[in-house]
Design a protein around this nucleic acid. Structure first.
Lengths: 186, 204
DNA sequence: ATTTTACTTTTTAAAGC
DNA sequence: GCTTTAAAAAGTAAAAT
């Protein structure tokens, strides 16, 4: 039996940081190759890195959001690239800006099909949201860790809202034991 | 604090005045969907509850009215799909769906997922299919659900596929197009669900 | 009739309307 | 509330082939 925890895979990491300097996005957009900037549509400038793949949203305040990375290491590497690109444009960037991970999206597999109808009743209709007419996944919010799980009929699931990789592991553990207690993981 | 009290009375009065509009809208939508009066009553009581618990703030009256009507139909066992209620509402499907989820959560309605069988009588009636086809469709739904095919699937598409399959088995064939029209789902969905159901039923 | 593209859900920061 | 970005899950829809 494969331990569901061994199937956990980080799919996306969102983090925020700042260079500690205000920016003239108009000129950055002119000089930075591949930059997308449309202030009418969104106040942030979009810059994509290729290796590792990610998208950085750069704001006038100098604050930056990095999303799309597959690990916290990739987030740091992506932002290192962004910082260097800005320095090439003669923009002052703090030495080691603090990078805060805001959200980690993970996928996992329980290894067996799930009867979402039974799980909805078992976990308690007041604790879940399951509207297959609107979305095929059952939404389960956990208090500890404070994450949201999306359970699917295939047994696969998505854990989102966590700030550290361990959050997903703890969440999977809790979900597995809850479903086992309910006798709904067979 | 006096200002806050006055504001609360003002909003409450506004809500009361708008209640008239909400109830007439509920009635208009219910009429065009041929929803029984008893269900309209349930919808109106639910709307009043939503108003009393201040759930309408930040949302459109029509959106809440449509959502409570949708919820009432499900509660009373004669569901209308979001597509169907959206067709007679001036609020789009997506907004009705999220407002419904919000109201259901806040009012603690504890709604169970819709059983596809609830759509069989109405859809079959619109297609002028016999009792035999209805019974067969219900049998297909029960059997395939027990085999775990229902998880995550839309109740309307599931019911539509079972009805299509049953109409073939009972020699009262309806085309996928005819069934998709009354069920408000695409032919592709009927085809996909139909294939799985037929396979699970062991019919070839 | 099948395939591709796109949207549904959840999460999260950012600045501005 | 909305706008934008990324990503997974699986179902449905619209459009293209």
């Amino acid at each position: 039996m494969t331990d569901p925890k061994d199937t956990i895979n980080i799919e996306n990491v969102v983090a925020s940081t700042g260079i500690g300097q205000e920016l003239d996005l108009q000129s950055v957009a002119m000089d930075l190759e591949g930059a997308d900037y449309d202030p009418e549509q969104f106040p942030g400038l979009v810059y994509r890195t290729q290796n590792p793949k990610s998208a950085a949203l750069i704001f006038r305040s100098g604050k930056i959001v990095c999303t799309g990375a597959k690990s916290t290491d990739d987030v740091h590497e992506s932002l290192r690239i962004v910082f260097d690109k800005l320095r090439e444009l003669q923009i002052q960037v703090n030495e080691d800006p603090e990078i805060v991970v805001q959200n980690i999206v993970t996928s996992a597999d329980l290894g067996r099909n799930l009867n979402l109808n039974a799980i909805a009743i078992g976990l308690g209709l007041e604790n879940i949201e399951y509207e297959p007419e609107q979305f095929p996944g059952l939404v389960y919010r956990l208090d500890e860790p404070e994450v949201v799980a999306l359970l699917f009929g295939s047994g696969k699931l998505v854990i989102t809202g966590g700030k550290k990789p361990e959050d997903a592991e703890h969440a999977v553990d809790k979900i597995v034991s809850r479903l086992e207690d309910l006798g709904l993981l067979e | 604090r006096l200002r806050k009290w006055q504001e609360r009375i003002r909003t409450k009065d506004a809500g009361e005045r708008n209640l008239q509009f909400a109830l007439s809208e509920t009635d208009r939508m219910a009429s065009s969907l041929a929803i029984p009066r008893s269900v309209r009553e349930v919808a109106c009581v639910m709307y009043r509850r939503a108003l009393d618990e201040d759930l309408i703030r930040g949302r459109s009256i029509e959106g809440v009215a449509t959502s409570t009507l949708y919820a009432a139909c499900r509660m009373e066992g004669i569901p209308r799909s979001l597509e169907e209620v959206a067709a007679v509402s001036r609020v789009e499907r997506k907004e009705i769906g999220r407002t419904y989820r919000y109201v259901a959560q806040e009012l603690g309605l504890e709604m169970e997922p819709v059983n596809p069988k609830k759509y069989v009588p109405r859809f079959c009636s619109e297609l002028e299919l016999s009792e035999e086809v209805q019974a067969k469709a219900n049998e297909i739904i029960d059997t395939t659900t027990e085999k775990g095919l229902l998880s995550g699937k839309s109740p309307t598409g599931y019911a539509a596929a079972a009805i299509y399959a049953a109409s073939l088995l009972c020699n009262e064939k309806k085309t996928q197009r005819e069934v998709s029209d009354v069920a408000q789902v695409t032919e592709v969905t009927i085809r996909n669900r139909y294939q799985e159901q037929i396979e699970a039923m062991g019919i070839h």
